[in-house]
Design a protein around this nucleic acid. Structure first.
Lengths: 215, 215
DNA sequence: ACCTGAACACCGTTCAAGT
DNA sequence: ACCTGAACACCGTTCAAGT
């Protein structure tokens, strides 16, 4: 067989299949020969549609985390509540695709489409420009860290760790509630930092007076 | 050449070399043939000292994150300060070995030797047993998430992301200060949660009264 | 233009053979 | 017991050859 009248390979179908296989076997478990096999096609053929394996994996991540991310938020709510809502949505989405998580540690993230919305939101609410990035970094880091943690728990049975580490006790607290408690703590901390900065800004004369102001 | 009078391969030296190579080229960049080459030995020989590649990588991670983790803490300080101090130390250690970070997302963590100390610390300070795990999960997740984020920044130049993502603005805030602000927010949040739980415990009669109590 | 089979240069790992 | 070279079963990727 050679060139058919209509292409055998559809980018979209490749990516969807790849995502399904990654969800099942993890990223390291995905081989292009397997993927091609599932599609009834030769592995080499994939290179006519994608530059390399990374582009396929990247497509799968986008499909899951961007296209697949729909959270209706109430824009009349205060920004803190909107941020909580968006983060909870993202957290749950990541929990659906735990095998994608290692990607977030390798490539640049800010994958969630809500990233820019949150930036505008903070800006509109008088959050000082210089702290917006710093704050979003911490909430984003918390999100990813918690997603990683959550993925571990679900696989804890498989790993059979050293005896040093006791089996994870049932946390006695709902995972989403746990997530939210910490997240709100972060938000409050940055609101406080903004307030402190305001005070400090007016007294930036000496280093000693700064310390006094924040104490 | 065959069996020498004294072994050619020393576990410790293998692990140290592996760590150095991982720090330089990342985990995926480490091949057993390269490692063996650096040690002046055949790759197959490594299998007389390690079960597989994972055991070597694991050893490197332990060497860096456990043996290499020394933070002097003041045990007279309140537990919150001790936790901040330990976390800052761990955060800096992870920043020294950014290439080890992907490991934390794959294997069980709690690698830092301070883990058990913190548990005892919280317990000794009357932190309710059921919330200790939940709290430490969030601070640990925050630590790892922030370490990942920090590793990204150092490599941001190399990646050359899509134009959508603007170059990371100079954060205008010291990374360690940023880390600490968020961490303290998490701690405060859990202290608050403990307090709330106390109230709720005494009024667990109806769901509606619970909502009222926490509001 | 699109797909194929074969090949290339790598892996981690195994194993019979050497001393 | 410890080390070796060769081999095995995999990779991702390239490429001439087919239509």
């Amino acid at each position: 067989m050679a060139r058919p009248t209509s292409p055998l390979i559809d980018r979209r179908r490749v990516i969807e299949t790849a995502l399904r296989m990654i969800d099942r076997n993890g990223i390291d478990g995905l081989s292009l020969r397997d993927l091609a096999g599932e599609l009834g096609v030769n592995a080499a053929s994939l290179y006519h549609h994608f530059a390399d394996k990374d582009e396929i994996i990247d497509g799968a991540a986008r499909l899951a985390l961007i296209e697949g991310f729909q959270t209706t938020i109430d824009r009349d709510q205060p920004w803190q509540e909107q941020l909580v809502q968006l983060s909870l949505g993202a957290y749950e989405k990541l929990r659906e695709h735990p095998n994608l998580i290692p990607l977030l540690t390798l490539r640049a993230d800010r994958r969630f489409s809500s990233h820019h919305y949150v930036m505008r939101l903070l800006r509109a609410n008088g959050f000082p420009e210089e702290l917006i990035v710093a704050m979003m970094e911490t909430t984003g880091a918390y999100l990813i860290g918690m997603a990683i943690r959550s993925a571990h728990e679900e696989r804890a049975v498989a790993y059979e760790d050293e005896t040093l580490v006791p089996p994870i006790e049932a946390s006695a607290i709902d995972p989403l509630e746990q997530f939210e408690i910490g997240l709100r703590g972060l938000i409050v901390a940055w609101e406080q930092a903004v307030a402190d900065r305001g005070v400090r800004g007016r007294r930036r004369a000496t280093r000693t007076s700064q310390r006094a102001a924040t104490a």
